[in-house]
Nucleic acid binder design. Structure first.
Lengths: 182, 182
DNA sequence: AAAATTCGGGACAAAATTATCCTTTTATAC
DNA sequence: GTATAAAAGGATAATTTTGTCCCGAATTTT
């Protein structure tokens, strides 16, 4: 007698194309979490961060190193150490700052078709069409700051981790299922 | 006696993050070129396409296969063969159709932070901020069609290839320079 | 001082994207 | 028919992105 079980697992792979790289997505999520905890006077560890935002631990460590070196986040070693952002800086740090540090500003400045030379004088076919999109994205990234982004989180209005899985795989064999879910 | 030479070369590597994948960029450029030539009653070959849009030949072949299988482009084998798009279909095929076939629609539908579950009811912190950008991008991609995109090209108002190089590398040694540029 | 905890950073591994090579198939022209 | 020109498609390689492992450095607690 065999049953149909299903096992669910998160995947960390970047979908064919998203707006930001995985590095940047994790970085933004981490920064918002740190911002929220900093507002509450808490310093938080890498372990806690990767648990809360559902990101791979060691990869997140590299990203936080980058943000720390960029001066966007403060780090402290040793027990009781961790990451934090001074409250007074929260409203000054924008989404743009995070993206710039991790992905660069190609996304708002580059040509939509990847041409090196694409400008008003020498436009690609979608140059005009792309203007508005790029301008919106750029304005949004400069407007959104860590204070605003983290208050929604603290109030429970927004979320940083998906409760729902990305990939669902069906497994008939109970033993196989248990070997994966144990 | 040594001089300072510089050698210039195009790079086909995707920058850290752009709006579309390289595959999609080449696909869009190829489709617009084919559209323009089709308007002039010409069928064009892979070789001509990759020369005109400055894309790697074999990679472009794969992309055109995908577009052909998706029914967006017609292909014909043999001498005088090549790629074309029936004129009457040009205004019906949108940027969205090309992107959808090559990259999927994740870019306008997916969460900006990569969360699997991100919606009005369970939003990520940047969900509201991203709405406008995504909507603009989606609307633009549905609005822009191959007829419009290719007429600018035919009239010489827009370009599909960069005259200007992406990377510049300085090389002092004349022998090294010659070995590269020969 | 020793132990424990946490970040820093180098080396390495896996996966996805980007790109190349080469053979087969199909159609045209001679 | 034969040669030729072009797309189709399989296999493979290079590069980049994503992710892991492990050890060292710094800081706090005991």
């Amino acid at each position: 007698m065999s049953y149909l079980y299903f096992v669910v697992y998160l995947n960390h792979k970047r979908s064919p194309i998203e707006m930001f790289s995985k590095k940047c997505e994790y970085g933004i999520r981490a920064a918002i979490l740190i911002a929220g905890e900093s507002l509450k006077g808490q310093r938080i560890s890498l372990k806690y961060i990767s648990e809360q935002i559902g990101s791979p631990n060691a990869f997140t460590a590299k990203i936080l190193q980058t943000l720390t070196r960029a001066g966007l986040v403060d780090s402290q070693k040793g027990p009781t150490g961790g990451f934090e952002i001074p409250i007074e800086k929260l409203s000054q740090i924008t989404l743009h700052d995070i993206v710039e540090a991790l992905d660069g500003s190609q996304i708002y400045n580059g040509c939509g078709l990847g041409l090196a030379e694409c400008s008003e004088d020498h436009p690609c076919p979608i140059h005009e069409h792309f203007k508005l999109v790029r301008a919106d994205l750029k304005a949004m990234a400069h407007r959104a700051n860590l204070l605003d982004l983290s208050t929604g989180l603290i109030k429970g209005f927004t979320y940083l981790k998906t409760a729902c899985p990305k990939k669902i795989k069906f497994i008939k064999d109970k033993k196989v299922l248990n070997s994966i879910t144990e």
